[in-house]
Computed example of a mutant assay.
Amino acid sequence: MAEDMQQKMEKYRTAPFDARFPNQNQTRNCWQNYLDYHRCQKALSAKGVDTAPCDWYNRVYTSLCPLSWIEKWDSQREDGAFPGKI
């Protein structure tokens, strides 16, 4: 399974279709993948497990989200003022 995921990551070019977000506006998709990445990091780090599976969410949200949004959300997380539940 890990090898299969690794092969998908190597062929990765842009965010794949996600049936949860069928419309052209991908703002919600960007937001959800950002949250999923940080939730995944938090959960796996707490268990002491390798966080490599979380890289998928990272690659998706970095391809969908404007850099200014990511920087803003990162600074909000650092300041403890992030509006999302991680």
Rank of each mutant, 00 (worst) to 15 (best):
D50G: 05
M5V: 14
R13Y: 05
D50M: 07
C54F: 02
Y37M: 05
D55Y: 05
Q6C: 01
Q6R: 10
Q32V: 08
Q32A: 08
F21L: 03
R20F: 06
D36M: 00
C65H: 09
Q7E: 10
Y37K: 01
A15I: 06
H38S: 06
P22R: 07
K11Y: 10
E71L: 12
W69Y: 15
C30R: 03
P53D: 08
C30V: 11
W31M: 12
R59E: 00
D50N: 15
P16C: 05
I70W: 01
W31V: 15
D18T: 13
K72R: 11
S75F: 03
L44A: 02
A19E: 02
R77K: 08
A43H: 09
V60H: 02
G80F: 04
E71G: 12
R59W: 06
F17V: 09
K11D: 14
W69H: 06
D55V: 02
Q76C: 02
K11R: 13
R77P: 04
H38L: 03
N33W: 04
V49N: 00
D79E: 14
S68C: 08
A15F: 07
N33F: 13
A19K: 14
C65T: 07
A19F: 09
S63E: 14
A81K: 07
S75A: 15
P16K: 08
K47I: 00
N23H: 08
T27D: 08
V49S: 09
E3M: 14
Q7C: 07
Y37N: 11
D4Q: 14
D55R: 12
C40T: 04
W31I: 13
A52V: 12
E10A: 12
N25Y: 00
Q32G: 00
R28Y: 07
Q24H: 10
T14A: 15
Y12Q: 10
D4K: 14
V60D: 01
P66I: 08
C54Y: 06
E71Y: 12
A2W: 05
F17W: 13
N25A: 11
N58S: 11
K72W: 08
K85R: 14
W31D: 15
G84T: 04
D74I: 10
W31F: 15
W73S: 02
D50Q: 01
D36H: 05
L64D: 04
N58E: 10
K47L: 09
G84S: 06
T51N: 02
N33C: 08
E78N: 13
D79V: 10
P83K: 07
C54N: 03
G80A: 09
P66T: 00
G84V: 11
K8H: 09
W73F: 09
K8M: 13
Y12T: 05
Y61H: 14
Y61E: 01
K85W: 10
D55P: 01
Q7Y: 12
K72Y: 01
E10H: 13
D79C: 13
A46S: 15
N23C: 10
